[in-house]
Structures are given as C-alpha cells and as structure tokens.
C-alpha cells in the first residue's frame, strides 16, 4: 500500500468570533433594538496548509504559540471543519491530545472505558476484548470497578492513556511530551509510543521540545501564523526555527 496515511491539501480555517459577547436572546434583542450591528472578528488560524505523510513516519510540527498547531490537530481529529481544502486520513486515528474525553466521575472505571472507547469509535464488543489489557496497562486492577470520582488524577490519566493507545491506531496524534503519571509510567508510555513506531504507526508529534523533534522525527513542518513557513529534515528546519526565534528575542 502506497497510500498516504495523512494528506492535508490546502487546508484553511477561518475563525469567526463575534465582536460582542452576546450569548442570550435577551441581550441580542436589546442590542438590536439599540441599533447595534452584529459582526465578527475574523482571522485565519490556518491558511493553505499542505502536509503529507507516508505510513509509519514520524512527523513533527513546531511553531510558536498561536501559530496554528492546535487548530491543525483539531482539523485532523475532525473537531473543526476547514472552510477550504481537504483532509484525508487513512486509518484509525488516536488523538492523545485529550485523554479520557467524556469521562464521567459517577461511572466506574470500567463503564468509562466503554464510554471513552466508543467515543473514539470502537464498538462495545471490541472494548470487551481489550478490557483486560487496558486494566493491566493502567495498573488500576481492582479499582477499575470503583467510581471515577474516587480516582487520583494520575489514575485517571493512566486509564485515559491506556484506552487511547489500546485501540490499535494507525495514526497517533501526540501533543507535547506525555506527562502522564510517575516516572515509571512515563517510561512505559514512551516505550509504547516507540513500539507503535516500530509497528509502522504514523505519528504526528506536536511539541516545543526541539531536542525531541531532532531525535524522533523523520520530517518536520514549521508553522508560523497559520502557514507552513518551512518543512524538511528535522536538523535543517529546527536550525531555521532557532535562528528565527533568536532574531526576535
């Protein structure tokens, strides 16, 4: 298969934020009666971005805060629809951006595992098969049947990570280094991500840690003000980015 795992072609996202903080019918009616106009701030969070990745590559995304990295991840995850351009994704995507999305504190760890798994697009049957693995990896053991509100934040994060990485993704989106749990669990996470890489899972890594980019990535894109400023080999792009940042400082 020579199909690209990720193909982003000419994607633009325009945010359209109301200038007035009107969030109720009452305010809206009053504002309109006073003759106010309802208009928007517009700005391009992404403008004509092209990014491609073959299967099994590790792609790095770097850039300053507000450069559009998070927007790009949201477009990839399907949360935001771009106003132009196309996003093609071949395979199941696991966003390690938001671990444990939709966790409910009143439900048990097990119930939350089903809920979170189906949010990520698995079936309940698949989740039943993976349950033992998830419990083992998250080290929750007998706590899996306790309500989530009794968990420590580390336990919640461990469970979220275990579910997100146990759904056999083809594409992994990693935002920042995984700061989940204690040192031992972090090492386990790093090992798992490395294992994915060996299995040929495509990884999209978003980070400010330029050293990590140099070590892990096959290819790097540098985003600046919503456009790709440079892309290429990690060493070259990182050098350009460093120079750019030094000039601005």
């Amino acid at each position: 298969m020579n199909m690209q795992a990720i193909k982003i072609s000419g994607v633009s996202v325009k945010y359209r934020l109301p200038k007035q903080a009107i969030r109720s019918v009452k305010e809206y009616v009053v504002y309109r009666l006073k003759g106010g106009r309802y208009d928007y701030h517009e700005f391009w969070a992404l403008k004509r971005v092209y990014i491609e990745s073959a299967r099994g590559k590790v792609i790095g995304i770097i850039g300053r805060n507000g450069a559009g990295k998070s927007t790009l991840l949201k477009v990839l995850a399907g949360v935001i629809k771009p106003i132009e351009g196309k996003v093609e994704i071949n395979g199941r995507i696991a966003p390690l951006i938001e671990l444990g999305a939709g966790f409910d504190p009143e439900l048990t760890g097990r119930e939350n595992t089903y809920l979170n798994g189906t949010i990520l697009g698995c079936t309940n049957r698949e989740m039943s098969q993976k349950m033992d693995q998830i419990v083992a990896f998250s080290e929750l053991n007998e706590f899996i049947d306790a309500p989530l509100r009794t968990y420590s934040s580390g336990m919640v994060a461990r469970l979220g990570f275990a579910i997100a990485t146990d759904i056999d993704p083809d594409i992994l989106i990693v935002d920042e280094i995984l700061g989940v749990g204690d040192a031992g669990f972090q090492a386990k996470c790093a090992k798992r991500v490395e294992g994915f890489r060996e299995k040929g899972v495509t990884i999209l890594l978003v980070t400010h840690d330029l050293g990590q980019v140099g070590k892990m990535c096959d290819y790097v894109h540098w985003l600046e003000q919503g456009t790709v400023r440079a892309h290429g080999k990690p060493s070259e792009v990182v050098a350009q980015y460093r120079k750019f940042m030094a000039e601005r400082a």
């Binding site: 809920l115 949010i119 079936t123």
Partner: peptide, 12 residues
C-alpha cells in the same frame, strides 16, 4: 459505528 456510543450515553 457510533451505535455503541449511543447505548453507553443512554446507560450513563
């Protein structure tokens, strides 16, 4: 694909 999600949301 999201039928399971529907069931889980109702259950919740």
């Amino acid at each position: 694909r999201f039928g399971g999600l529907l069931i889980n949301l109702v259950y919740r």
